[in-house]
């Protein structure tokens, strides 16, 4: 890690010589932590910042969905049959313009068939999308980190078993298994009912199939870190295994884990949407973007807006997370020069 020791900005030349000397002396003692360097780099990366801002905005939308909808829309499960053309089953007037269903009352038009407010359903869909993606990432990160660290540190048969399991999970036809699993699990489980069951199942299943990706990286890093002198030093001082694993090794794994977590979230969003698209996600009336697209298969010819709205929602969300994740990766990369 080479942080610049001298301030080379043009202002520094103009300052009085004594100030410069004092400044340089002060700066040379002040080292910068990896976190500070990464933050400085991230602040300079405009695309990543833009992604980050959109991510924050989306999280706020998800958190305040009830408020936003009460101000700008209608309840997400309220039917508005009066908006629907009884002959074609889509919003009235769509023959003339694809935006016929849009009004100040219904910002993104109405859903074909039942006239539910598309805007409200998009806003509520953000909740499901982000909730499932975040929680599944947490499951994957916890499993992957613990098992990866254990495999890498202990080696031997423990490593063999964990590594084989990871190889196997990566070679599984994942999507097939996930839809199969979701299809046999019942509507109520462990005392939960309704859409919370489906959310729980989605989180667990997506997280479970995601941990080997993190596990492999953590294992690889641990393999090289366990030979480092500071680990040797801790061991010779009599530190226990748990202490070495979680106090000595884990802090040094934070950077790669952060990078893979931020890049895993957009993948999880796409997986959740894909499952909903295949009718293996949350069940209606709970709104989700994938489910809207799945319904749009039948109506995209007469009502293209109903397909475009959830599609763009997924696209913008995933793109923002990808931009932000790429930025975090570049910022935390010790080899990076930016």
């Amino acid at each position: 890690m080479t942080a610049p020791l001298h301030d080379t900005s043009p202002d520094a030349d103009k300052a009085a010589p004594a100030d410069v000397a004092a400044d340089v002396a002060k700066k040379s003692v002040e080292g910068r932590s990896l976190r500070q360097i990464a933050w400085t780099r991230l602040k300079r990366d405009k695309l990543a910042l833009a992604g980050g801002i959109v991510v924050v905005f989306l999280v706020l939308v998800a958190l305040f969905a009830p408020l936003i909808v009460s101000l700008l829309g209608h309840p997400p499960d309220e039917f508005h049959q009066d908006k629907i053309d009884p002959l074609f089953g889509v919003a009235k007037g769509l023959d003339d313009s694809m935006f016929a269903g849009v009004s100040s009352d219904f910002l993104l038009g109405v859903e074909p068939g039942n006239g539910r407010d598309v805007f409200s359903r998009i806003v509520y869909g953000a909740r499901i999308s982000l909730l499932v993606a975040f929680l599944a990432a947490v499951v994957a990160v916890v499993l992957g980190t613990v098992l990866g660290i254990v495999a890498g540190y202990f080696g031997g048969w423990i490593d063999s078993v964990i590594s084989r399991v990871m190889d196997m999970l990566l070679a599984f036809p994942q999507l097939l298994f996930i839809i199969s699993l979701v299809s046999v699990l019942p509507g109520d489980l462990l005392g939960m009912t309704g859409s919370s069951v489906r959310i729980f199942i989605l989180v667990m299943v997506i997280g479970f199939f995601g941990w080997p990706y993190i596990g492999r990286i953590v294992r690889g890093q641990t393999l090289s870190l366990r030979e480092k002198e500071y680990v040797e030093a801790a061991r010779s001082l009599g530190a226990g295994r748990a202490y070495i694993l979680f106090k000595e090794l884990l802090p040094n794994l934070v950077a790669p884990i952060t990078v893979y977590t931020t890049l895993m979230i957009p993948t999880n969003i796409l997986t959740e949407a894909a499952l909903s698209f295949l009718n293996a996600g949350v069940k209606p009336p709970t709104a989700s973007w994938g489910q809207m697209l799945s319904k749009a298969i039948n109506t995209y010819e007469s009502d293209p807006l109903f397909m475009i709205a959830p599609g763009l929602a997924i696209f913008i969300t995933v793109l923002a997370f990808n931009l932000f994740g790429d930025g975090v990766r570049d910022a935390l990369d010790p080899k990076g020069t930016r």
């Binding site: 697209l293 298969i297 995209y300 010819e301 599609g311 997924i314 696209f315 995933v318 793109l319 990808n322």
Partner: peptide, 17 residues
């Protein structure tokens, strides 16, 4: 980047439309 962020069930429907 746009390509990896676009799900096929959206681009697919869009292309069909």
């Amino acid at each position: 980047l746009a390509g990896v962020s676009l799900p096929i069930y959206f681009t697919g429907l869009l292309s069909l439309a």
